[in-house]
Design a protein around this nucleic acid. Structure first.
Lengths: 224, 224
DNA sequence: ATATTTATATAATTTTTTTATAAATATTAA
DNA sequence: TTAATATTTATAAAAAAATTATATAAATAT
């Protein structure tokens, strides 16, 4: 349960409405107010985003264009938000890889139901707890235990560790880590990541060695 | 752990498959091979049955009809078994009170995981009284006692505490808490939640420590 | 009237970032 | 290859920033 949903709509009121209901259901929300911003955000956080709610009518770049662009290299589930009367486009959309349509106005209940149905379908077996040679992450509780003993991690430490672990066996550059664990625009350079890595390693004790240093690149979580 | 699960499917092979896995997990199984039988069994044993696995396509009386009948006077959790491609019915189902969908073919692992998840969710909440290391909530009476001694909580305090406790071991964000305990959205960030937490902790005395602060996130109720 | 809820201000605490230096690793020249 | 040099990361401690706890006051509801 740590899914990210990108809401793309030019009306801030609409975004807020949707967001509130999804937040209440425990989803993390990203917002874009036009197509260009949507593409930009998606490019940065593609690996985090589990579903996109995409309005059709938008200034700058409409929903269809965004859809096409994203579909060039991603299969992320997309729900299109259409105004009533745009049904004739639906068939067209399915061919481009739309997963669902919801026509405005819609009840929040329906929206939530569809989102949950799709995520259930696509996520498949998304276990809440995972165990990596004794390092166990409980996402609901946001706690980490090592060999059954809880360790205390700060927010950033927790998120950094989870990010590394979710990308097990993948070398992650510092840039990528900053993009995903910190906020989009983060200027600070210095040894911030290193400091956190150090603390995490220390708190993991013997198992800290699973966080490998990839010299010149970044870090990698690898159990072996 | 003495839960009864009713499996409704016209294919005996399918029933056997599901049954074997659930029996292995320690559940008691009842079987029905069509909708009529399902209703009959449910009528007889309604108070014993904790969950129903219900196939949609069946002779005599299909899954939807069974669902509707049962929902007239029971909230028993129901998981619908659908053939692939019946997704469009899902929304319809949710409104009728379906708790989950599993589409065939499915892996037994997924089935078991969902069954367990639902039972955990529903069983926990069903009890009118629960005791968390001396903190006891009587939902009917809307009272809380600590080590047998009643404490006085205001409306918000009570609801906040119940919300935290019902989500035991789950880290709850401030947003989520606001949405669920205050049920309106809320501008400006004041320390309202914190104030209430403080008061609850104080009233819980020593046991106030079970409300953990999740820095950067929110709060979590955790007895340990 | 009284109790409850929310707002505000400040203190206390924790987290995050920066900084400086040491250590490790890689690169280059002899 | 070895030694010198450069680059990168590890580490610790200090500084800065962010978050929460708490008390009290104000607003609101009962």
């Amino acid at each position: 349960m740590n899914e990210y949903i990108l809401i793309v709509d030019d009306e801030s009121r609409m975004r807020k409405l949707i967001k509130d209901f999804l937040v209440a259901k425990g989803y993390n929300i990203l917002e874009a107010e036009d197509g260009e911003q949507a593409l930009q955000i998606f490019e940065e956080k593609a690996d985090k985003i589990n579903l996109i709610l995409l309005d059709v009518m938008m200034p700058k770049l409409d929903g269809w264009s965004v859809l096409r662009q994203i579909r060039q290299n991603s299969k992320v589930p997309i729900i299109m938000l259409t105004a009533r009367g745009e049904e004739q486009d639906e068939l067209f959309g399915f061919e481009l890889g739309v997963d669902e349509y919801i026509s405005k106005p819609f009840s929040p209940k329906i929206l939530v139901a569809r989102v949950e149905a799709i995520l259930k379908r696509t996520q498949g077996n998304n276990e809440k707890r995972k165990n990596y040679d004794g390092i166990e992450i409980d996402k609901e509780g946001r706690t980490v235990t090592v060999d059954g003993k809880a360790i205390e991690l700060s927010l950033r430490e927790y998120e950094l560790l989870v990010y590394l672990i979710e990308n097990e066996n993948i070398a992650l550059s510092r840039d990528k880590i900053l993009m995903n664990v910190w906020n989009f625009d983060y200027y600070g350079d210095s040894r911030t990541i290193d400091s956190h890595i150090k603390k995490i390693r220390h708190k993991l004790g013997k198992k800290g060695k699973y966080i490998k240093t990839m010299r010149g690149v970044g870090y990698k979580f690898e159990v072996k």
